[in-house]
Design a protein around this nucleic acid. Structure first.
Lengths: 207, 207
DNA sequence: TCAAATACTGCACATTTGTTCAGTTTAGTC
DNA sequence: GACTAAACTGAACAAATGTGCAGTATTTGA
C-alpha cells in the first residue's frame, strides 16, 4: 500500500531524501519544486500528489530529519552514559557511524533553528531538557558549586554543545577543516568537559 | 547633492532603515521590494533608482548594520576594558543606550551568521579575532592553566558570547522573556565570567 | 485475467516578484 | 524665472514558481 513505498527508494522516499539534502544546502525558500523533482528524477506533479504541497513535503522532510537526528544524538547519549568504555572510543565509534549523514543533519539543524518554526523550538526545548537533566545530575553529585547560577548554566552548556553545529561552516573556513574531523571533535569534547569542570584557571578541588 | 540626502530621513535613508528592520524580522528572501517600498512610503522604482537592485539595497543595509553593530560592541568592549568602574554599571549603561536597536541588531546578526554569506564570515572572523585577543591577554596574565586547549578555548568562548544572540528567540519562549532583559543580561554576564574562570566545581586557586 | 487503486507524468494557469523606463515632481544654481 | 540634475512615481514586462488536473503507466488483489 502507501506505507510499503517507504521501503524501496522509489518516488516518495527519493523525494524526501533529496529534498532533505537540498533544503539543508540552500534553505527551503531557495529550492524550487522543479529542482527537487529533477534531482529526484521524477515529475513536478508527483510532489503534490504525495504531499499535497511544497509545505507538505517540508513536513515530511522534517519528520525524516527528526528521525535521523534523534537516532544519532540519543543513540550516542545513551551509549555514552550506559557504557563503561573510554569516552574517546565511544566518540570514535559515533563519528564512524554517522560520518556520511552528519554534515547534512547539521546543516538542516542550522536552518531549523534559524527559521524559528514551532518544531525548531521543540527541538531546542528537547535539547534544553536534556542538558538540564545533566546539570541536575551533576548537582546531585555535588559537582556544582553553590554559588553557580542555576538558571544560566544549562543555557551556557547548550551554547557550548550546539555551537559547533551552528558555526561549523565558519570553523571550517578559519581552521581549514571541519570541527567534526575525528581528532578535532575529540579535542573539542575534552576541552568542553574541562571548561565545564574547572574553567580556564586553577585546578578543581577534588576528583 | 547625493550625500546630503543621508542627513534627513527621506527616501534613500528611510529605505535602508526600513529594510534593515524587515530583513532582520523575516529574512532577505521573504521580504519583497514592494513590502519595503510600502513600509517606507515610497514607490518600488525608487529602490532600483538608488541601489540598482534588491541586492544593492542589501549591501547598503549590511553597511548600515555593520556601523550599528561595530558601534555597540566595540564601544562596550573598550569601555569595559578601559574604565575602572563596576562592570555591572558599564553593562547597565550599555543596555540603557542600546535598548531600542539591540533586538533588531541581534536579529540581523542571526540572519547574517546563519546565511553563510561571505560578509557573515568576515563578521564571524572579526568576532573570533576579538575573543582570541582576550584569550591571549588572559594567557599572558597567567589566568589560563597550561593544559587548557588553546585551539578550542577561543571558539568555546565565542559560543558562549554569541549563544544568547542566536538563541534569544528560544530563550524568550523558555523563560518568558528576553535574555537581554536588564537583570537577566547581567546575570548572564556574571555566569559567563564565572564559568570561564572556574567552571562549575571548586574554587579557583588565586584571586 | 480483469478491474480498481495508486503511482506518476507534464502541460497549463495564476500568482508573485524583481526590474525597466518614460514621465513627473522637487531642489539647487545662475 | 529658466535651466538642469537628481529624486521619485507607477504602470508594464518577463521570469520564476507553486499548484491543478486530465491523462497514462504500474501495481495490487481476487
Amino acid at each position: 500500500m502507501v506505507q510499503g513505498q517507504r521501503d524501496n527508494p522509489d518516488g516518495r522516499e527519493r523525494l524526501v531524501r533529496t529534498a532533505f539534502v537540498l533544503f539543508a544546502e540552500k534553505g527551503f525558500d531557495s529550492v524550487t519544486v522543479r529542482d527537487i523533482a529533477a534531482a529526484s528524477s521524477v515529475s513536478v506533479g508527483l510532489i503534490n500528489h504525495h504531499f499535497g504541497s511544497k509545505d507538505g513535503l517540508r513536513e515530511a522532510v522534517d519528520e525524516f530529519f527528526i528521525a535521523q537526528f534523534e537516532d544519532a544524538i540519543t543513540g550516542a547519549a545513551t551509549q555514552e552514559l550506559s557504557t563503561t568504555l573510554d569516552p574517546a572510543e565511544v566518540i570514535d565509534a559515533w563519528i564512524e557511524r554517522h560520518a556520511d549523514d552528519w554534515p547534512t543533519i547539521v546543516a538542516y539543524f542550522r536552518r531549523a533553528l534559524l527559521e524559528e518554526s514551532d518544531w525548531g523550538f521543540s527541538l531546542f526545548q528537547r535539547f534544553y531538557g536534556f542538558v538540564q537533566a545533566t546539570v541536575m545530575r551533576m548537582d546531585a553529585a555535588g559537582q556544582i558549586a553553590p554559588d553557580v547560577d542555576r538558571l544560566w548554566l544549562p543555557f551556557l552548556m547548550m551554547y557550548l554543545e550546539i555551537g559547533t553545529m551552528v558555526f561549523d561552516p565558519y570553523i571550517k573556513r578559519v581552521l581549514g577543516r571541519s570541527g567534526y574531523d575525528r581528532d578535532l571533535w575529540q579535542r573539542r569534547h575534552r576541552a568542553y568537559m574541562s571548561l565545564i569542570r574547572r574553567g580556564t584557571a586553577g585546578r578543581r578541588a577534588a576528583d
